[in-house]
Design a protein around this nucleic acid. Structure first.
Length: 265
DNA sequence: CTCAGTGTTCAGTG
DNA sequence: TCACTGAACACTGA
């Protein structure tokens, strides 16, 4: 599921459901991988009886601001998501924790693949892993000069740099490919080989693509039809853009990368 | 049965 | 020490 836009949608949903409510009960499963460095029991007792004041996000990380610390922090991995419901039978199949609120609403984190993480942190925004994140395209849209300077120092393929969360937090596989396509830059170019204008273009596209993706709030079919997004998924030979340009799939920066040789130089 | 996948981490290398 | 790379992680669904 989640790159920054989906995580931001999840943050908004959680804020709507949880803000101002008291957590009356916490259910957990036994999972020492997802509960990173804490026992589910300690997690539950830190949340039980607490009031939720707000929901924070940076990059792909989320946390609840409670009336008392420590606070819970979440990462969705590849397949995590939040779900709200009212009856216990509606629990999602792969639920890892469930909050019961004072208005009888239930709120769960589900994650089939178990690459997500559940943490307890005193000050999430200011301690690892969240404080190690780089530029956040929604909150740091004024940091263009730093983005350009840092990118043009990197020796790795620009695709790999975009995926590096300590460089740009929240950019994932399809967004990296989308901004490279829209910027007309080949994914295997090294960061240090980009011109200032190219790096600047990439910066603007990262902001624009992520803002647009947040605006459609999960209705991905509302992206402009010119976006690579709509045409990149079928890895079958013969995939083409809206203009009929051939889409190539290859591994770059350790991930399947979709790009368009006719457009990206 | 095999393999890819909207993500991160960590050991190994130069 | 640093930047970078590739494998590992865990599990579903095509």
């Amino acid at each position: 599921m989640p790159e920054l836009p989906e995580v931001e949608s999840a943050r908004r949903m959680a804020a709507r459901v949880l803000t101002g409510r008291r957590i009356v009960a916490v259910a957990t499963v036994r999972d020492s991988i997802m509960y990173a460095g804490i026992s589910p029991m300690r997690f539950a007792s830190a949340l039980r009886g607490r009031m939720v004041r707000g929901v924070g996000r940076r990059g792909k990380h989320l946390w609840l601001e409670l009336d008392c610390r420590p606070w819970p922090a979440f990462h969705f991995g590849m397949t995590g998501y939040f779900e709200k419901y009212s009856r216990p039978e509606e629990r999602p199949r792969f639920w890892k924790m469930e909050l019961l609120l004072d208005n009888h609403t239930r709120f769960a984190l589900s994650d089939a693949r178990r690459l997500g993480r559940i943490r307890l942190l005193n000050d999430p925004a200011n301690e690892p892993p969240i404080c190690d994140l780089g530029f956040d395209p929604l909150s740091d849209s004024d940091l263009g000069p730093r983005f350009v300077q840092e990118l043009r120092r990197r020796k790795a393929p620009v695709k790999a740099v975009l995926l590096d969360q300590s460089f740009s937090a929240g950019v994932g596989n399809w967004i990296a490919d989308e901004v490279l396509y829209q910027s007309k830059i080949r994914p295997q170019r090294r960061g240090c080989d980009l011109s200032p204008a190219e790096a600047q273009c990439l910066f603007r596209k990262v902001i624009a693509v992520i803002r647009r993706a947040v605006d459609v709030d999960g209705n991905n079919d509302r992206y402009p039809r010119t976006w690579l997004f709509h045409y990149r998924w079928g890895k079958m030979a013969g995939a083409v853009t809206f203009k009929g340009e051939k889409i190539v799939h290859e591994t770059i920066g350790g991930r399947t990368t979709a790009w368009v040789p006719a457009v990206q130089k």
